[in-house]
């Protein structure tokens, strides 16, 4: 039986453990601050260079930009903490060294180029932050404060998104060989990732046909047709873009495809269907009719996210038609 007067005593073991742990914790903190040598920088950062938009090796290592402000001591400290928190993790450091080109960009009053133009081009709006881009500067991902585990996932995510992004950029440059290579890689690395769009198989098949690989183009479309993973009750009656696939496989005519693209308040069906018709006609050697369809697609939308219209404009430029240039900003805003 415990005496009533003793019930409110704190046990000596608990008190002793509390004090001992607090002393040990203080010792560890002070040892870490005063005596422990700062670990060697896990990553060798490269100096910033201006973005080279003409680069075509889009499947080589992506660039990882670390932007930070360097105006005041507080900003320097913040950047140090950010860098130490994310890049002192051994797994993160290994992944960055193996798969990315790390570039550190300090933004301060004295330096101007290329740091400022890099920040402007990529639309950097918070510091410190990390931007991952293709070798030609096209943004893949951006992130700021995160735990190192989440950052590791973010880097892996960027690697998955890299191939579909490179394929899209290749289509804008009409680099069919690179587009085929990028789509092949995207499918091999991570088939049906959320970064592979619903129309990617259509673009891939068009690129393959431009490379005179009709058999594979048909195989890609049929595989898409068989392996579509969206249940029927979600796809609905229209099941867009199935009519485009049917058209490319020769199951329906261009007129039938146009009819199926009527309910289209934002013009995205028109942009895709006319692009598909245009490319198909071009591959059949019907140049004038192809230009007419491609123009309809190009004019369907000027929005930065309407890829079909952008691809159509690129094709029209190639065919010698007068089309307004793409705004660089429009490419880069896609990250938001």
């Amino acid at each position: 039986m415990i005496e009533p007067g003793r019930t409110n005593l704190i046990p000596k073991t608990l008190l002793g453990l509390c004090i001992a742990l607090f002393i040990m914790r203080a010792s560890a903190v002070f040892y870490g601050t005063y005596f422990q040598k700062a670990p060697a920088k896990a990553i060798t950062w490269q100096q910033p260079k201006p973005i080279d938009r003409s680069r075509r090796d889009l499947l080589s290592k992506p660039t990882l930009y670390f932007f930070y402000e360097d105006y005041s001591p507080l900003q320097k400290v913040t950047a140090e903490v950010f860098e130490s928190m994310l890049f002192q993790n051994r797994e993160v450091a290994r992944l960055v060294k193996d798969e990315f080109i790390p570039v550190k960009v300090a933004i301060n009053t004295s330096n101007s180029e290329p740091a400022k133009s890099l920040a402007n081009t990529l639309g950097v709006y918070q510091y410190p932050s990390i931007y991952i881009t293709l070798p030609n500067g096209k943004s893949i991902h951006q992130v700021s404060w995160q735990s190192d585990r989440m950052f590791h996932a973010f880097l892996n995510d960027a690697l998955i998104a890299r191939a579909p992004k490179a394929a899209g950029a290749a289509l804008e440059n009409l680099d069919w060989a690179l587009a085929c290579e990028a789509y092949e890689l995207a499918f091999k690395e991570h088939a049906y990732s959320p970064y592979s769009g619903i129309c990617d198989e259509i673009y891939w098949s068009i690129a393959l046909r431009h490379q005179n690989n009709e058999a594979k183009a048909k195989q890609v479309l049929e595989r898409e047709w068989k392996e579509r993973r969206i249940p029927e009750f979600i796809r609905g009656k229209e099941d867009w873009p199935k009519p485009c696939i049917d058209y490319l496989l020769g199951k329906i005519t261009a007129e039938e495809l146009e009819k199926k693209a009527t309910l289209d308040p934002h013009s995205y069906k028109k942009a895709l269907s006319q692009y598909v018709i245009g490319e198909n006609l071009l591959l059949q050697g019907k140049r004038d009719e192809a230009i007419k369809a491609l123009k309809l697609s190009a004019e369907a939308s000027k929005a930065y996210y309407m890829h079909d219209s952008k691809y159509a404009r690129a094709q029209l430029r190639q065919l010698g038609e007068k089309v307004e240039d793409e705004k660089e900003e429009s490419d880069l805003r896609s990250i938001y």
Binding site: L21, F22, N89
Partner: peptide
């Protein structure tokens, strides 16, 4: 974070327990 850190992980463990 503790397992993969290049720094002294014992500080984190002690802070948590304490």
């Amino acid at each position: 974070h503790v397992v993969n850190s290049s720094n002294l992980p014992v500080a984190n463990v002690l802070i948590y327990m304490s």
